[in-house]
Design a protein around this nucleic acid. Structure first.
Length: 680
DNA sequence: ATAGGGTTAG
């Protein structure tokens, strides 16, 4: 075999560097093999292994590896193969190769561990990760900063932030990457304050951040929702000339949007010279998070004309928006779009479309879609969608049927399944069945969480089993939180005041409970208490989240907020609500003044009731839809008692089917009654 | 001797 000079190696090096296709890679590979160079210059072989793997040919890479790693004590090639696997998501193979490496007596080094840990991190393999941690200690590589950072990252990605923090604290020297790993860890663990404190420390230590750090920090600020901090991050990026970086621009767009400042997000978005999928998807999400669905739709049109084509994530964002808005018509349009575009529809997207149909009131289509999925392809979420969908409509029996069918088919229910089935039982008043499901949880090895107790309390409370509900709270093995007390408060107004005291200790900032509590006081005419609560709210700077209701009309959507004077049809709609109020009063409707939280005379308070967003939307529907059409409205908050009662009368007098989806469930009004039987 | 860690939309 002829020994080739270094100039030949350099030539191949160049060749590999500029090689962009699988075909040319194969050519280089075969030419190196025939010349025998591949056995002499292993770094060339290593580069080919990496390239094959990134081109989706891990098996070719592996056979090349198998044919050239003849020197048993040589860890370089092993590390290369492990790196190739780990960086391309072949987590099982990474760990398999690592264990072969150990069994063959090849010693690992500081280049081995970061990749093995990465494989553990990306699949949340905490047990394997801990074994590797042990190996690291035994082989004496714990002092290496790359290994340390990878360890912190592994623990964090496996959800064990505390263990990661322990490793971090014990590090003697921390470089920028270790700090960033820890900042990201806190951000991912939804502890944005901690993340920002760490970032402050990097600044105090005089460390210069790079773009990765900024992206993490921006994302932490987004979680925090603090516009001022967002501006500071934006400013920092400008001052340090980071704003050229596409990732940073994207993260700033998302950050502003999550802080509620979509206008600023759009400004940054518009100023970008290049946009990738993440840019468009971030902006779309931003509009939807801020309730600006129509802007999102305009942007989607623009996106289709851009050089960046929508991907499944885009579709997921749009479909979820329709779910949120309750717009079946738009949802159907996007579903059609998804089918016609050639995008890959994975289980997540398909389930999201099913969920859209179920939550927009078209259970038949949801169920048909479900039936079209091959039984082996149905995952827990597919079942959860149907169970939750039927539950929201008050069809508890049907939800239970799906639940038992799911068990028969051997699909293991998860915590969401039980939340859905328990709330289905609650809405349908199926207490015995609900108790049984709750008991089954432990048998099916799903540990009851606080939210499941909240469902139980809600169910028992509604059904009038107040003491059992209260006992349930007292006997919980977990500390009851605001939602548990809130469930008791919502369901049984009689025990409201007891629950309220606990509630305000636990969740002093939660606006919803203030509102609920003032309703309870108002219902028993305790106006002094109502006033005091409202004073409290004002002092704490709390505002009730703005109510809005949405109805489809023609090819468009009409949205109304409380006492709306922005909607173009408001004047006609006001007239209609007022005349309807007169008519249903003659039929026996009594305005429920406790639903109006205003310090005004009764007559005005009654007047105010007319302008609740859901009443405006329903009136709009009755005015504009054909008489036989169902008036379907989606409200972002819980439907109020007064509107609920009014809709019963309206459905009777005007002979209309009215469907209202509120934050909790569907209400089908027909002939003077509601499918929720007046408890919801 | 060759080689390496952290980030953004859902």
């Amino acid at each position: 075999m002829r020994r080739l000079g270094p100039s030949t190696e350099g030539f191949y090096d160049q060749l590999l560097k500029s090689c962009n296709f699988l075909a040319s890679l194969r050519q280089i590979h075969s030419s190196l093999t025939t010349s025998g160079l591949i056995n002499q210059a292993l770094h060339l072989g290593a580069k080919i292994i990496i390239k094959y793997t990134t081109y989706g040919e891990p098996n070719t890479a592996r056979s090349l590896f198998n044919s050239i790693h003849n020197d048993k004590s040589y860890s370089f090639l092993w590390n290369t193969m492990i790196r190739a696997y780990a960086n391309n998501g072949h987590c099982v193979e990474t760990l398999e190769l690592y264990s072969t490496m150990r069994r063959s007596g090849i010693s690992s080094n500081s280049y081995t561990f970061p990749f093995v840990l990465k494989a553990c991190a990306s699949n949340s393999l905490i047990l394997e990760g801990k074994v590797v941690h042990g190996d690291i200690i035994r082989t004496g590589f714990l002092s290496d900063s790359y290994v340390q950072a990878a360890l912190v990252d592994m623990y964090a990605k496996c959800g064990q932030t505390d263990d990661g923090c322990k490793v971090f604290d014990e590090m003697s020297v921390r470089d920028l990457v270790s700090w960033t790993v820890m900042i990201t860890a806190y951000e991912q663990a939804e502890k944005p304050e901690e993340a920002l404190i760490l970032f402050q420390k990097t600044q105090q230590e005089g460390l210069l951040s790079d773009s990765v750090t900024i992206v993490s920090v921006a994302s932490a600020v987004g979680q925090l929702g603090d516009v001022l901090k967002a501006q500071a991050v934006h400013g920092y990026a400008i001052c340090n000339a980071f704003l050229e970086d596409l990732c940073i621009q994207n993260s700033i767009v998302a950050m502003y949007a999550r802080c509620g400042n979509v206008e600023k997000a759009r400004l940054v978005f518009d100023m970008m010279e290049k946009r990738d999928l993440i840019s468009w998807n971030s902006m779309l999400t931003g509009y939807i998070q801020n309730g600006q669905a129509s802007e999102a739709l305009l942007l989607f049109d623009e996106m289709q004309n851009s050089d960046c084509k929508p991907n499944p994530v885009t579709a997921l964002i749009l479909v979820s928006a329709c779910t949120y808005l309750g717009s079946r018509q738009l949802g159907r349009k996007f579903h059609g779009y998804i089918i016609n575009s050639n995008m890959k529809i994975d289980a997540t997207l398909r389930n999201a479309v099913m969920d859209m149909y179920a939550k927009c009131g078209d259970l038949d289509t949801a169920e048909n879609m479900f039936n079209d999925i091959h039984p082996s392809e149905r995952n827990v979420s597919s079942w959860n969608v149907l169970i939750a969908g039927y539950g929201m409509h008050g069809h508890g029996r049907k939800a239970l049927e799906f639940f038992s069918q799911m068990l028969e088919e051997g699909v293991k229910p998860d915590h969401i399944t039980f939340t859905s089935i328990l709330s289905a039982c609650s809405h349908a008043g199926l207490i015995d069945e609900g108790r049984k499901c709750f008991a089954d949880m432990t048998k099916l090895s799903v540990k009851p969480e606080v939210k499941h107790y909240a469902c139980m309390v809600d169910m028992l409370g509604r059904a009038g089993c107040l003491y059992e509900a209260f006992d349930m709270i007292k006997q919980m093995p977990l500390p009851p939180n605001d939602s548990v007390w809130g469930a008791l408060l919502l369901a049984c107004r009689i025990h409201g005041e007891i629950a309220a005291n606990y509630l305000f200790q636990l969740e002093p900032e939660h606006t919803g409970y203030f509102v609920l509590m003032s309703n309870i006081y108002a219902a028993s005419n305790k106006w002094r208490e109502v006033g005091k609560l409202r004073e409290d709210m004002k002092n704490k700077g709390l505002k009730k989240p703005a109510a809005f209701s949405v109805i489809e009309y023609g090819k468009d959507i009409q949205g109304f907020h409380t006492a709306d004077r922005v909607n173009p049809y408001w004047k006609e709609v006001y007239k209609k609500v007022e005349s309807m109020a007169v008519e249903i009063k003659m039929a026996g409707y009594m305005p429920d003044l406790s639903c109006a939280l205003h310090d005004v005379e009764d007559e005005d308070r009654e007047h105010m009731l007319n302008y609740h967003s859901e009443k405006l939307a329903v009136a709009f529907g009755i005015m504009n839809l054909t008489p036989e059409a169902v008036v379907q409205v989606t409200k972002n908050l819980r439907v109020c008692n007064d509107c609920h009662s009014a809709f019963r009368f309206i459905s009777y007098i005007y002979r209309r089917k009215i469907i209202v989806r509120d934050a909790n469930r569907f209400h089908h009004f027909e002939g003077g009654t509601c499918s929720c039987n007046d408890y919801w």
